[in-house]
Amino acid sequence: MSETADILTQAAHWRTEGEEVALATVTQTWGSSPRPAGSQLAVTRSGRMAGSVSGGCIEGAVAEAAMMTLDSGTPQLLDFGITDERAWEVGLACGGKLKVFVEKLA
């Protein structure tokens, strides 16, 4: 029962279509995060999305960060949580905390 393999397949498929693709993966969670470590979101430069890293709370912020990684080629480790003011901005209402690794599919 793995869904991440299929998101990776989708991401790889977009890549072969010539899209620029970033992959975001939940690496760690604390408290009531809706998606476990290993959950993935693939985002293209053109705005296509597959998968999820939360219940929809932080996907927008992650997609934004993904664009920076597409520009720079440099991976990022993002922190979301109640101790982070940014979490309020993006509305992590569940009160959970999580880390998301964002990388570019070269």
Partner: peptide, 11 residues
């Protein structure tokens, strides 16, 4: 090996 056994991603 532990990650595979549990089928759980981890840092």
């Amino acid at each position: 090996d532990r990650a595979l056994l549990r089928d759980e991603a981890a840092t």
